[in-house]
Write a protein that binds this DNA or RNA. Sequence first.
DNA 1: CTGCTCCCTGTAAGTAATTGCAGCTGTAAT
DNA 2: ATTACAGCTGCAATTACTTACAGGGAGCAG
Lengths: 244, 244
Amino acid sequence: MSNAIANIELLQLCETQEQLAATISGLAGKYGFEHWMYGLDLPVIDDRKQQYMLGGYPSDWVDHYFVNEYLRLDPVIAHCQAHSTPLLWPSTNTPPPSTDKRSRAVWRMFNEAREFGLDSGISIPVHGLGCRWGLMSFAAKTPMSLQDLQHLVPHLHLLAHCIHDAGRRYAPGIAPPATAHLTAREIECLHWVAAGKTSWEIGRLLSVAERTVVFHLQNATQKLGVSGRQAAIARAIVAGLITP
Amino acid sequence: MSNAIANIELLQLCETQEQLAATISGLAGKYGFEHWMYGLDLPVIDDRKQQYMLGGYPSDWVDHYFVNEYLRLDPVIAHCQAHSTPLLWPSTNTPPPSTDKRSRAVWRMFNEAREFGLDSGISIPVHGLGCRWGLMSFAAKTPMSLQDLQHLVPHLHLLAHCIHDAGRRYAPGIAPPATAHLTAREIECLHWVAAGKTSWEIGRLLSVAERTVVFHLQNATQKLGVSGRQAAIARAIVAGLITP
DNA sequence: CTGCTCCCTGTAAGTAATTGCAGCTGTAAT
DNA sequence: ATTACAGCTGCAATTACTTACAGGGAGCAG
């Protein structure tokens, strides 16, 4: 097993997206995976979300995947959205489940993937600042057992997170969150506003005039560089200033 | 080095918070750490945020830490909020930096920590669904070198994320995000509203009447179980329905 | 002391959101 | 073919937010 720290340092040296991809391909190969893919902001629900993808999955499979809207079906995606732990998909050859319609569709999807050269692998969820999440998948053409995968997990897990930190430089919209310096009062008002309170109600809660609440929210909105209370809430949440 | 997978299975067996804490203590000890701490929703900026903490840091130090408002000073906290990669703090004995006031305060903080039995260690950021983030720290009383820490990193990193998934059961407010079934139009409207657009503007964008936009947002607000557009935005963001 | 930041408050006009009513279309499943 | 649901629209009254005007007080650093 190669040194995990040395791998990370390799990633940090990358200066372009292409260099990064090449480095990752090299590392994945060393662990026995022919394919890998890093996906960020996958449009699971929100179609207008623009995803960022990097990696070497067979393009035929990727096309097939999106055409069939597998994003909404894939249990790997569902797991990664809600959890922080890796998901292993070892090589299996189970009969198709009988009852459930959805289960059968999933079974079929995995079989199709196998035909495209994705036999077994591991997917690692990566969650970051601003509710942005993605996943890093490593896939092998030749079957790997659960045990094979298990002893790679710690290294791949760390590697995935380092790739996430290294790759965010290239994903769009990860511009500096511009953590404006908001005062305590401004954050307090934003907090309550995000909870659905009106200016007048917040005034009662803080024992100040309604006008004062409006004043603070006005300042906060301006500092966040947006127009409107609603946009201010969105910005404050993704910047980690409030947690509703 | 014990089997990482076996460790994870131990965590999943825990049924109470106390069992979980005891299990983690056992694992941390095997890796050579006397102290560990898991913190979630730390009130770095927002004082009214209620944090969740679990762990065995010396209580004297924790008190000292919060009294002095080290949360705002601690570079470990700042790193963990913005990154996904672990931070190692090996045993050092550097002279106090001269110029910067803040740097000196940080230097002093680490020295104080050492006196409380936290000589060296590693901190791992954990980010999860709904913009909730925290960190898992392992600390040793006896000095550990950078190399000592480095080869523990992959295992501890995975372990931290498994603890995060296991521990969320006990942290307050991680109730099911109640992913209400919103329609495509509703999500579309929420998306633009979070961007600061007015109902009329969204109407133009979607080529529908202003009234229709109001209608969709009304339905979305109701499905999300909140009152007011602002609260709907907050809910939609933390539920992962939109990404501004 | 002067300048700075944060906190606080008022009036008033204009704009936007909320909520009640009532009604229409098309598609998909039972 | 009936039901169900998503999408769409109009009017009207009330409430809430936005913005522009104006001002005072407390605390802290140079």
